[in-house]
């Protein structure tokens, strides 16, 4: 065995271990797009609550009005659905390019690890919504999303874990400063996603 063979041999071992246990098809650029959707959504949310050309401390509407709440839920759902479609579609494209399947044992394990905290957070927010605790929802979504990323992050790039930890911290801050939920939400789901997306894109793509 010469040196070239040895290097190849170790390369096979390394690539198999990584390919079989990590989800590498997550696209960095989809992170950037999802961040942009979130910022657009946050802007739409701001307009719904504060009106178009509002001055400081002047609101056209209050968050407790049912029509406003329905509009906000509509905006949030649109952002969520657009983000899911973009994320999945770009992951499939990246997997195809690497001649891999998007469904493998590790991506299934990752989905389960992320799904449990995410669904819990979703139900938790719906309960808060039904009880009228509107000011807590921004923080709740950030915290549970962060938990979901930290637990799913074991199966993919380490940056996902860091993104999760930052989302949790932002969520906790959002709890400390009630009334600024939308700003923290825009920072967490918008700005952080864009930064994270660029980092992953630069490092791995």
């Amino acid at each position: 065995m010469d040196q070239q063979d040895l290097i190849k041999e170790i390369g096979h071992i390394r690539s198999m271990m990584e390919k079989s246990s990590k989800v590498l098809s997550i696209s960095g650029l989809s992170g950037v797009l999802i961040g942009i959707y979130a910022l657009l959504g946050a802007t739409a949310g701001y307009v719904v609550v504060y009106g178009f050309d509002s001055r400081f401390d002047y609101r056209d509407h209050y968050v407790t009005e049912p029509a406003v709440i329905n509009n906000l839920i509509g905006v949030a759902l649109t952002v969520l659905i657009a983000s899911l479609i973009t994320g999945l579609w770009m992951a499939r494209r990246k997997a195809k390019k690497a001649r891999q399947y998007i469904w493998n044992p590790s991506s299934k394990a990752m989905l389960l690890a992320m799904g449990i905290p995410l669904i819990t957070g979703g139900l938790f927010s719906l309960i808060l919504l039904s009880r009228g605790y509107f000011s807590l929802i921004g923080a709740t979504l950030l915290i549970f999303y962060g938990l979901s990323l930290t637990s799913g992050g074991i199966y993919t790039f380490k940056e996902v874990r860091w993104l999760g930890i930052l989302e949790i911290l932002l969520g906790l801050f959002a709890l400390l400063f009630p009334g600024y939920g939308l700003w923290f939400w825009a920072l967490g789901f918008g700005v952080l996603h864009i930064i994270y997306g660029f980092i992953v894109h630069k490092r791995y793509e």
Binding site: H12, I13, M16, M17, E18, S20, S21, Q100, N104, P105
Partner: peptide, 20 residues
């Protein structure tokens, strides 16, 4: 390669091994 996959994962099924 099979052994590498089984070292990194507790268990793996036939079709996933084939794809990997």
């Amino acid at each position: 390669q099979i052994m590498s996959v089984l070292m990194a994962n507790d268990s793996y099924d036939f079709s996933s091994l084939k794809e990997t």
